[in-house]
Nucleic acid binder design. Structure first.
Length: 537
RNA sequence: UGGGGUGUCGCCAAGCGGUAAGGCACGGGACUUUGACUCCCGCAUUCGUAGGUUCGAAUCCUGCCACCCCAGCCA
């Protein structure tokens, strides 16, 4: 139970509200990222849990930044995450907002200002000094009404006039020093076209949007705490009832991850990544393409909690959530990233036997598959060491190891290239050690995977890592990308049964962790990497 | 130096006057035809700090310190 839930249960108990209504209000100026997922999960699960509803509302009040494409992408992402809400657009309320502005003018609570942007800034004062009133602050109601109407009719150029709330130029809260609530923008709106050339500012529009939709709990991030008095001012002066209330929580930060939409957009616009759904992006779309299950993201959002302290969550927790779901959902398969040839010297030439291997170790219902085995095989380069580190459990010269689902083999000879690197292993196998009917009595310390040399399926494999290597990189992110954020393994070989891989379906490639087939790159792409404890120490 | 917030384990986070939940990470062990998974066990005498109130404080009071946000005609 987080602090917002406490407020809600209290409000319900004391009958301050009958039914809670929340909203997720993105601006359609980019794709959603994992930070938005926190807000989505919060707002929608609150509504679900307390029998209320949650609206998906586009806060499209700035025509210069917003696009229809982003609206569609956002709807898709929210649905993919597993939530559904009625879709609304703030721009559909422009008429009402305009009327609210007129109402404020009539009440003497708003005025048309002729100061330039620079002058407004000057007059606003500083953090420590009060501002001073604009010379236009005391225009008559009639003149304000006339001018505002002229603004709407397009009779004034951008920047020449603004509508300002008349509050308090000396307020210690800068947001209350006569904030601009309407501005002139001669731009085409993605939904309204050229109907408008005056657009409401966030601080004015948002409370009205909430009031219209009868939002009971308007949940936003910490940086809007200072705006709450203005939010309440708008609700009161526009005389809305019932009155929505704003609550704030700390936004999500993740280690090694850049979350700023401005930067993400730059990465896309400059072609540093494939697009908003590049698997390295912290976007919902990127994670979906990479194979993160929606369930994992939901679990993650649940686990991190909701509070007001600024924090940075370790990405390891996200990855844990992903593995946690995948471990149950993903079929196992054998793939070698970097093949090393193995010849079974005592295995008959030309013979191939099909081994039956379970698709999931803990769940027999998932069935089995047939994997070919013959004289020539490939194993993972990393699974053989000429000079093994201490406690190495895989194959060494003269040692034995079990081939997963097959036989125990012993490495007798190593063929080296001119650099002294192993290029082929000459091994013998123990026929009586066949998986499931082992009577050899041998106890190999390790199990490794393999693919058949003749019947395997060549495939491209791509490992993704985070774009940034460390937290410092957030500062000058454009110059300091993780050079290994994308690693291709063009020589990877998969067991033949993997030919049937479906796009987006997760597999656990033993030791290489989780992958899924991506149709855009025609490759298996990495979902999550190895846990540290899985690596050779 | 104005206003608004926040400070509990390496990272999140419960706790709401009765003597520090949980998860991640980490360490140790068991199991294992994945060094995975699973399963045990360990991991804050201490809650930014200094005082005070109280039989008793992370929780109440006071002072101090640190960090975050605010001076867009962005959201």
């Amino acid at each position: 139970m987080n602090f917002i839930e406490e407020i809600i249960t209290d409000d319900l108990k004391n009958k301050r509200v009958d039914q809670i209504i929340t909203r997720f209000p993105p601006e359609p100026n980019g794709y959603l990222h994992i930070g938005h997922a926190k807000s989505i999960c919060l707002n929608f699960t609150l509504a679900q849990k307390y029998n209320g509803k949650c609206n998906l509302r586009f806060d499209d009040t700035n025509p210069e930044k917003e696009e229809e494409e982003f609206c569609q992408a956002i709807i898709r992402d929210v649905e993919w995450l597993g939530f559904k809400g009625d879709v609304y657009y703030a721009s559909d309320y422009f008429d009402i907002m305009y009327e609210c502005a007129v109402k404020l003018i009539k009440k003497g609570k708003a005025y048309v200002d002729g100061l330039s942007a620079e002058q407004i800034k000057e007059y606003r004062g500083t953090l420590t000094e009060p501002g001073k009133p604009s010379p236009f602050r005391d225009r008559s109601v009639e003149e304000n009404l006339r001018l505002f109407e002229e603004m709407r009719q397009g009779k004034h150029p951008e920047g020449s006039l603004t509508l300002r709330a008349k509050i308090d130029m000396a307020s210690p809260n800068i947001n209350m020093r006569d904030p601009v609530i309407y501005r002139i923008v001669h731009a085409r709106h993605h939904r309204q076209g050229d109907k408008w050339c005056v657009y409401p500012m966030y601080d004015f529009a948002h409370p009205i949007e909430d009031a219209i939709e009868k939002i009971t709990h308007s949940i936003c991030t910490l940086e809007f705490e200072d705006h709450r008095p203005l939010y309440d001012w708008v609700i009161n002066e526009c005389e809305f009832d019932p009155k929505p209330h704003q609550y704030e929580f700390a936004r999500l930060n993740l280690t090694r991850t850049i979350m700023s939409k401005r930067y993400l957009k730059k990465l896309v616009d400059e072609g540093v990544v494939d697009g908003w759904d590049d698997p390295r992006m912290p976007t919902i779309a990127g994670m979906r393409r990479r194979g993160y299950p929606a369930e994992a993201i939901r679990n993650f959002c649940e686990l991190i909690g909701v509070a007001k302290a600024n924090s940075e969550v370790d990405v390891a927790l996200l990855e844990h959530c992903v593995r946690d779901v995948l471990n149950v959902k993903a079929d196992r398969a054998m793939v070698v990233k970097e093949p090393l040839k193995v010849t079974i010297t005592n295995y008959p030439e030309g013979k191939t036997e099909m081994l039956t291997i379970e698709n999931h170790p803990d769940n027999p219902e998932r069935g089995t598959r047939e994997v070919p085995f013959s004289k020539e095989l490939y194993i993972e380069k990393e699974d053989f060491k000429l000079n093994p580190p201490p406690k190495y459990k895989r194959l060494v010269k003269g040692g034995i190891v079990r081939l997963k689902g097959a036989y125990i083999i012993r490495c007798d000879d190593v063929v080296l290239d001119e650099n002294g690197e192993p290029v082929e292993l000459k091994c013998t196998y123990f026929p009586e050690s066949k998986s499931g009917q082992d009577s050899s009595g041998l106890k190999p310390s390790g199990v490794i995977h393999f693919v058949d040399a003749s019947q395997n399926y060549p495939c491209k494999l791509i490992d993704y890592d985070y774009l940034l290597t460390d937290d410092d990189s957030k500062k000058d992110f454009m110059e300091r990308f993780n050079p290994n954020s994308k690693t291709e393994f063009p020589n990877a070989l998969a067991e033949i049964s993997l030919k049937n891989a479906k796009a987006g379906e997760p597999y656990q490639f033993m030791r290489n962790a989780y992958y899924c087939w991506d149709t855009k790159t025609n490759a298996f792409i990495q979902i999550v990497g190895l846990k540290d404890s899985y690596k050779i120490k």
